[in-house]
């Protein structure tokens, strides 16, 4: 790697870097700053010439309990989804990283990761087909069981949780797998040769060493779920009102953009707090 010495090298560096970062500036960082600005306005300048500056949008969040209740509901949803993702994903990652070797491991790992990269909207939609009343799942269960079962899962909170766990599970398995794969097998063999039980190995070696990966995965699930709106809309029906859907409404149905900007910005603040709290662990997970 070269230190920058000549003006020509400085120019080359600038030419290579500036297009990408200018693009990010215009498309991400300026919009985020603009949103903060608009969250303090009474009206959008393009709609009303007599717009003014106000704290009213934030006061609305503080005085109207609907918003804080929904934010709490979204946070609770994120906790639930994250919990199930880790609970379900950990054994998977462990088996993949430590019990399966060679080509079949590569193939299985790819199979677990692949759905994550397919369209999330379509995957949520596929659950709508499976879970709907008298749908495929109910029929399958009733075909096996002798008595009649009505699940009534569609348009419930459970349906939203199932869809979101399905969406984000591969993420957790990916980070956990990478963390567990890095654990030295000799360490496990040494512990076993000294008489450690499987539970002790899990508790004293695997869990502590994979903790950064676990937390990284948890954050990567938690953050997008707090801001989810499409999944609750499709699978939650009337139960599917969350903080994210209220923000969506401000922009596409109610057209109160300044309030929407304020609500978005509060969500961003929550996300930043979570990311900042997790950042020491996330840094460790990277290395």
């Amino acid at each position: 790697m070269a230190e920058l010495v000549t003006p020509a090298e400085r120019r080359r560096l600038f030419t290579l870097l500036s297009p990408a970062y200018l693009w990010l500036l215009v498309a991400v960082f300026l919009p985020l700053s603009a949103m903060l600005f608009f969250s303090f306005l009474t009206d959008m300048p393009q709609d009303a010439p007599d717009w003014g500056v106000t704290l009213g949008n934030y006061a609305e969040f503080l005085t109207n309990p609907t918003y804080s209740t929904l934010l709490a509901k979204s946070l609770k949803l994120a906790v639930t989804v994250t919990f199930f993702c880790v609970l379900i994903g950990y054994p998977c990652a462990l088996v993949l990283a430590k019990s399966i070797k060679g080509r079949s491991r590569e193939a299985l790992f790819l199979m677990v990761i692949l759905p994550f990269w397919s369209n999330s909207l379509v995957r949520i939609f596929s659950w709508a087909i499976v879970l709907r009343g008298n749908g495929v799942l109910e029929r399958a269960i009733n075909f096996v069981l002798p008595f009649d079962v009505r699940l009534n899962l569609m348009f419930t909170t459970d349906a939203v949780v199932i869809g979101l766990v399905h969406s984000y599970l591969p993420y957790v398995i990916l980070t956990l797998y990478l963390a567990l794969q890095a654990v030295d097998d000799d360490l496990i063999d040494a512990a076993r040769s000294m008489g450690a039980s499987k539970l002790t190995i899990l508790r004293r070696i695997l869990l502590p060493l994979s903790l950064p990966g676990l937390l990284a995965g948890a954050v990567l699930v938690f953050v997008p779920v707090v801001g989810s709106f499409m999944e609750p809309r499709i699978l939650g029906g009337r139960m599917g009102t969350y903080y994210g859907t209220v923000i969506e409404d401000q922009f596409v149905a109610v057209y109160n953009w300044p309030l929407g900007a304020a609500l978005s910005f509060i969500l961003l603040a929550v996300v930043i707090v979570i990311l900042a709290a997790a950042s020491p662990v996330l840094k460790r997970a990277q290395t």
């Binding site: 990010l24 603009a34 707090v226 900007a261 978005s264 969500l267």
Partner: peptide, 26 residues
Amino acid sequence: LQVLLFPPIAIPWLITGTAMLVFFFA
């Protein structure tokens, strides 16, 4: 510069999307 790559991935798209909408209109 390397850290600046993180926000577009880490911030929920709902926030990024609405911010873009507001800014692009402005």
